[in-house]
Protein backbone atom coordinates (compact mmCIF):
# COMPACT_ATOMS: atom_id res chain seq x y z
CA UNK A 1 0.00 0.00 0.00
CA UNK A 2 2.70 2.45 1.00
CA UNK A 3 4.48 1.65 -2.23
CA UNK A 4 1.33 2.22 -4.25
CA UNK A 5 0.88 5.63 -2.67
CA UNK A 6 4.44 6.55 -3.48
CA UNK A 7 4.01 5.44 -7.07
CA UNK A 8 0.93 7.62 -7.27
CA UNK A 9 2.87 10.66 -6.15
CA UNK A 10 5.56 9.98 -8.69
CA UNK A 11 3.04 9.64 -11.50
CA UNK A 12 2.53 12.54 -13.88
CA UNK A 13 -0.18 13.57 -16.27
CA UNK A 14 -0.74 10.96 -18.94
CA UNK A 15 -1.10 7.73 -16.98
CA UNK A 16 -4.21 7.92 -14.81
CA UNK A 17 -2.58 6.78 -11.57
CA UNK A 18 -5.48 6.76 -9.14
CA UNK A 19 -3.64 4.89 -6.44
CA UNK A 20 -3.93 7.31 -3.57
CA UNK A 21 -5.50 5.84 -0.45
CA UNK A 22 -8.85 7.56 -1.14
CA UNK A 23 -8.79 6.65 -4.81
CA UNK A 24 -8.17 3.00 -4.07
CA UNK A 25 -10.94 2.99 -1.51
CA UNK A 26 -13.54 4.48 -3.84
CA UNK A 27 -12.49 2.01 -6.53
CA UNK A 28 -13.07 -0.88 -4.12
CA UNK A 29 -16.46 0.58 -3.20
CA UNK A 30 -17.46 0.69 -6.88
CA UNK A 31 -16.34 -2.92 -7.31
CA UNK A 32 -18.36 -3.92 -4.25
CA UNK A 33 -21.47 -2.12 -5.48
CA UNK A 34 -21.05 -3.81 -8.85
CA UNK A 35 -20.89 -7.24 -7.22
CA UNK A 36 -23.92 -6.46 -5.03
CA UNK A 37 -26.06 -4.98 -7.83
CA UNK A 38 -25.47 -7.86 -10.23
CA UNK A 39 -25.43 -10.55 -7.53
CA UNK A 40 -27.44 -10.75 -4.29
CA UNK A 41 -29.52 -7.60 -4.92
CA UNK A 42 -30.24 -8.60 -8.54
CA UNK A 43 -30.79 -4.98 -9.66
CA UNK A 44 -29.41 -5.50 -13.17
CA UNK A 45 -30.13 -8.57 -15.21
CA UNK A 46 -27.20 -10.60 -16.57
CA UNK A 47 -28.28 -9.79 -20.16
CA UNK A 48 -27.77 -6.07 -19.58
CA UNK A 49 -24.65 -5.88 -17.45
CA UNK A 50 -22.30 -8.68 -16.45
CA UNK A 51 -21.54 -9.76 -12.91
CA UNK A 52 -17.89 -9.86 -11.83
CA UNK A 53 -18.04 -13.62 -12.33
CA UNK A 54 -19.27 -13.25 -15.94
CA UNK A 55 -16.53 -10.74 -16.55
CA UNK A 56 -13.92 -13.12 -15.15
CA UNK A 57 -15.21 -16.08 -17.16
CA UNK A 58 -15.18 -14.04 -20.37
CA UNK A 59 -11.61 -13.10 -19.61
CA UNK A 60 -10.62 -16.72 -19.04
CA UNK A 61 -12.44 -17.76 -22.20
CA UNK A 62 -10.78 -15.27 -24.53
CA UNK A 63 -7.32 -15.80 -23.01
CA UNK A 64 -7.40 -19.61 -23.12
CA UNK A 65 -9.77 -20.64 -25.89
CA UNK A 66 -10.10 -17.43 -27.87
CA UNK A 67 -13.10 -15.45 -29.08
CA UNK A 68 -14.20 -13.95 -32.41
CA UNK A 69 -11.47 -15.71 -34.28
CA UNK A 70 -8.51 -15.44 -31.95
CA UNK A 71 -7.15 -15.42 -28.43
CA UNK A 72 -6.79 -12.20 -26.47
CA UNK A 73 -3.14 -11.96 -27.46
CA UNK A 74 -3.98 -12.20 -31.18
CA UNK A 75 -6.78 -9.64 -30.97
CA UNK A 76 -4.83 -7.18 -28.81
CA UNK A 77 -1.70 -7.52 -30.89
CA UNK A 78 -3.68 -6.91 -34.05
CA UNK A 79 -5.24 -3.69 -32.73
CA UNK A 80 -2.08 -2.46 -31.03
CA UNK A 81 -0.05 -3.00 -34.17
CA UNK A 82 -2.48 -0.93 -36.26
CA UNK A 83 -2.54 1.90 -33.71
CA UNK A 84 1.23 2.01 -33.32
CA UNK A 85 1.84 1.88 -37.05
CA UNK A 86 -0.80 4.52 -37.83
CA UNK A 87 0.41 6.70 -34.98
CA UNK A 88 4.08 6.56 -35.96
CA UNK A 89 3.38 7.32 -39.62
CA UNK A 90 0.92 10.09 -38.68
CA UNK A 91 3.35 11.69 -36.19
CA UNK A 92 6.21 11.62 -38.65
CA UNK A 93 4.18 13.13 -41.48
CA UNK A 94 2.15 15.45 -39.22
CA UNK A 95 5.11 16.89 -37.32
CA UNK A 96 7.00 17.14 -40.60
CA UNK A 97 4.24 19.07 -42.32
CA UNK A 98 3.71 21.26 -39.25
CA UNK A 99 7.41 22.16 -39.22
CA UNK A 100 7.43 22.83 -42.95
CA UNK A 101 4.39 25.10 -42.71
CA UNK A 102 5.77 26.85 -39.64
CA UNK A 103 9.18 27.47 -41.18
CA UNK A 104 8.18 28.39 -44.72
CA UNK A 105 5.43 30.97 -45.23
CA UNK A 106 5.30 29.90 -48.85
CA UNK A 107 4.57 26.28 -47.93
CA UNK A 108 1.95 27.44 -45.49
CA UNK A 109 0.20 29.56 -48.12
CA UNK A 110 0.25 26.62 -50.48
CA UNK A 111 -0.93 23.89 -48.10
CA UNK A 112 -2.98 25.58 -45.41
CA UNK A 113 -6.17 26.22 -47.43
CA UNK A 114 -6.46 22.53 -48.34
CA UNK A 115 -5.61 21.53 -44.81
CA UNK A 116 -8.24 23.88 -43.35
CA UNK A 117 -10.82 22.34 -45.67
CA UNK A 118 -10.03 18.75 -44.67
CA UNK A 119 -9.52 19.46 -40.98
CA UNK A 120 -13.19 19.71 -39.87
CA UNK A 121 -14.06 16.32 -41.38
CA UNK A 122 -14.29 13.90 -38.45
CA UNK A 123 -11.99 10.88 -38.92
CA UNK A 124 -14.93 8.51 -38.55
CA UNK A 125 -16.61 10.11 -41.56
CA UNK A 126 -13.75 8.76 -43.65
CA UNK A 127 -14.51 5.14 -42.75
CA UNK A 128 -17.02 4.44 -45.55
CA UNK A 129 -14.73 5.90 -48.17
CA UNK A 130 -11.74 4.06 -46.70
CA UNK A 131 -13.64 0.77 -46.93
CA UNK A 132 -14.53 1.50 -50.55
CA UNK A 133 -10.92 2.24 -51.31
CA UNK A 134 -9.12 -0.38 -49.26
CA UNK A 135 -11.74 -2.97 -48.26
CA UNK A 136 -12.23 -4.37 -44.76
CA UNK A 137 -8.56 -5.18 -44.20
CA UNK A 138 -5.82 -3.36 -42.36
CA UNK A 139 -5.14 -0.76 -45.03
CA UNK A 140 -8.46 1.02 -44.52
CA UNK A 141 -7.92 1.14 -40.75
CA UNK A 142 -4.39 2.43 -41.07
CA UNK A 143 -5.63 5.15 -43.39
CA UNK A 144 -8.35 6.31 -40.99
CA UNK A 145 -6.05 6.11 -37.98
CA UNK A 146 -3.41 8.04 -39.85
CA UNK A 147 -5.90 10.78 -40.70
CA UNK A 148 -7.18 10.97 -37.14
CA UNK A 149 -3.69 11.35 -35.72
CA UNK A 150 -2.31 13.52 -38.51
CA UNK A 151 -4.54 16.54 -37.97
CA UNK A 152 -3.72 17.27 -34.30
CA UNK A 153 -0.01 16.64 -34.98
CA UNK A 154 0.07 19.24 -37.74
CA UNK A 155 -1.94 21.88 -35.86
CA UNK A 156 0.02 21.64 -32.63
CA UNK A 157 3.41 21.52 -34.32
CA UNK A 158 2.50 24.58 -36.36
CA UNK A 159 1.34 26.40 -33.22
CA UNK A 160 4.56 25.41 -31.46
CA UNK A 161 6.78 26.70 -34.28
CA UNK A 162 4.84 29.95 -34.48
CA UNK A 163 5.22 30.49 -30.76
CA UNK A 164 9.02 30.32 -30.73
CA UNK A 165 10.47 33.18 -28.69
CA UNK A 166 11.77 35.79 -31.17
CA UNK A 167 14.45 37.00 -28.80
CA UNK A 168 15.93 33.53 -28.44
CA UNK A 169 15.98 33.24 -32.23
CA UNK A 170 17.76 36.60 -32.48
CA UNK A 171 20.18 35.55 -29.76
CA UNK A 172 21.03 32.36 -31.66
CA UNK A 173 21.46 34.34 -34.86
CA UNK A 174 23.80 36.94 -33.37
CA UNK A 175 25.93 34.14 -31.94
CA UNK A 176 26.40 32.70 -35.40
CA UNK A 177 23.69 30.07 -35.89
CA UNK A 178 23.00 29.10 -39.49
CA UNK A 179 19.46 28.43 -40.68
CA UNK A 180 19.73 24.69 -40.10
CA UNK A 181 21.24 25.28 -36.65
CA UNK A 182 18.35 27.63 -35.85
CA UNK A 183 15.89 24.89 -36.74
CA UNK A 184 17.72 22.16 -34.84
CA UNK A 185 18.84 24.08 -31.77
CA UNK A 186 16.04 26.61 -31.35
CA UNK A 187 12.84 25.97 -33.31
CA UNK A 188 12.43 22.24 -32.67
CA UNK A 189 13.28 22.24 -28.96
CA UNK A 190 11.12 25.34 -28.44
CA UNK A 191 8.19 23.69 -30.22
CA UNK A 192 8.67 20.32 -28.50
CA UNK A 193 6.14 20.86 -25.66
CA UNK A 194 3.44 21.73 -28.20
CA UNK A 195 4.51 18.86 -30.46
CA UNK A 196 4.03 16.43 -27.58
CA UNK A 197 0.65 17.96 -26.76
CA UNK A 198 -0.31 17.19 -30.35
CA UNK A 199 1.04 13.66 -30.12
CA UNK A 200 -0.97 12.95 -26.98
CA UNK A 201 -4.16 14.12 -28.71
CA UNK A 202 -3.18 12.07 -31.76
CA UNK A 203 -2.72 8.93 -29.72
CA UNK A 204 -6.15 9.25 -28.14
CA UNK A 205 -7.67 9.85 -31.56
CA UNK A 206 -5.93 6.69 -32.82
CA UNK A 207 -7.64 4.45 -30.26
CA UNK A 208 -11.06 6.05 -30.72
CA UNK A 209 -10.84 5.69 -34.46
CA UNK A 210 -9.46 2.18 -34.40
CA UNK A 211 -12.28 0.84 -32.24
CA UNK A 212 -14.86 2.58 -34.41
CA UNK A 213 -13.30 1.29 -37.61
CA UNK A 214 -13.15 -2.26 -36.27
CA UNK A 215 -16.77 -2.03 -35.14
CA UNK A 216 -17.77 -1.18 -38.70
CA UNK A 217 -15.99 -4.17 -40.11
CA UNK A 218 -12.88 -6.17 -39.30
CA UNK A 219 -11.50 -9.70 -39.34
CA UNK A 220 -9.54 -9.35 -36.10
CA UNK A 221 -9.02 -6.88 -33.28
CA UNK A 222 -10.57 -5.58 -30.11
CA UNK A 223 -13.35 -3.82 -32.04
CA UNK A 224 -14.20 -7.11 -33.70
CA UNK A 225 -14.41 -8.73 -30.25
CA UNK A 226 -16.78 -5.98 -29.11
CA UNK A 227 -18.96 -6.34 -32.19
CA UNK A 228 -19.14 -10.13 -31.99
CA UNK A 229 -19.89 -10.02 -28.27
CA UNK A 230 -22.73 -7.61 -28.93
CA UNK A 231 -24.22 -9.92 -31.55
CA UNK A 232 -23.81 -12.89 -29.16
CA UNK A 233 -25.41 -10.86 -26.34
CA UNK A 234 -22.36 -11.47 -24.18
CA UNK A 235 -22.08 -8.51 -21.79
CA UNK A 236 -19.19 -10.11 -19.93
CA UNK A 237 -17.10 -10.16 -23.08
CA UNK A 238 -18.15 -6.61 -24.02
CA UNK A 239 -17.01 -5.26 -20.68
CA UNK A 240 -13.81 -7.26 -20.81
CA UNK A 241 -12.97 -5.84 -24.26
CA UNK A 242 -13.77 -2.32 -23.05
CA UNK A 243 -11.41 -2.74 -20.13
CA UNK A 244 -8.75 -4.01 -22.53
CA UNK A 245 -9.08 -0.88 -24.67
CA UNK A 246 -8.82 1.27 -21.55
CA UNK A 247 -5.66 -0.51 -20.43
CA UNK A 248 -4.11 -0.30 -23.89
CA UNK A 249 -4.95 3.40 -24.19
CA UNK A 250 -3.54 4.18 -20.77
CA UNK A 251 -0.45 2.06 -21.40
CA UNK A 252 0.44 3.71 -24.70
CA UNK A 253 -0.20 7.15 -23.21
CA UNK A 254 2.14 6.30 -20.34
CA UNK A 255 4.80 5.20 -22.83
CA UNK A 256 4.43 8.49 -24.69
CA UNK A 257 4.72 10.38 -21.40
CA UNK A 258 7.96 8.54 -20.63
CA UNK A 259 9.28 9.44 -24.07
CA UNK A 260 8.24 13.05 -23.52
CA UNK A 261 10.17 13.27 -20.25
CA UNK A 262 13.24 11.75 -21.89
CA UNK A 263 13.00 14.18 -24.81
CA UNK A 264 12.75 17.27 -22.61
CA UNK A 265 15.05 16.82 -19.62
CA UNK A 266 15.05 20.57 -18.99
CA UNK A 267 11.40 20.46 -18.01
CA UNK A 268 12.04 17.96 -15.24
CA UNK A 269 14.53 19.58 -12.93
Amino acid sequence: MAQAVRAGRRGRAGMPQVVSRGGLLSFLVVLGLWALATGPLDLVGPARFPSPADFWQSGVQIVTRGYAGGTLLTQVWHSLRLVLFGFVVASATGVGLGLLMGLSPRAEKLINPTFLLLRPIPPLAWIPLAILWFGLGDAAKIFVIWYAAFVPSVINTLTGVRGVDRTILSAAEVHGASRSQLVRDVVIPAALPMIFTGLRLSLQACWTTLVAAELVGAFFGIGRVLMTASQDVNPGMILFAMVCVAILGAGTTWLLGTLERRAMPWRQA
Binding site: T167, I168, S170, D185, V186, A190, M264
Partner: peptide, 8 residues
Protein backbone atom coordinates in the same frame (compact mmCIF):
# COMPACT_ATOMS: atom_id res chain seq x y z
CA UNK B 1 15.47 39.12 -21.10
CA UNK B 2 18.67 37.03 -21.14
CA UNK B 3 17.39 35.02 -24.13
CA UNK B 4 19.10 31.83 -22.99
CA UNK B 5 17.98 28.56 -24.50
CA UNK B 6 15.94 26.87 -21.76
CA UNK B 7 16.71 23.43 -23.25
CA UNK B 8 20.47 23.84 -23.03
Amino acid sequence: QFALMPWK
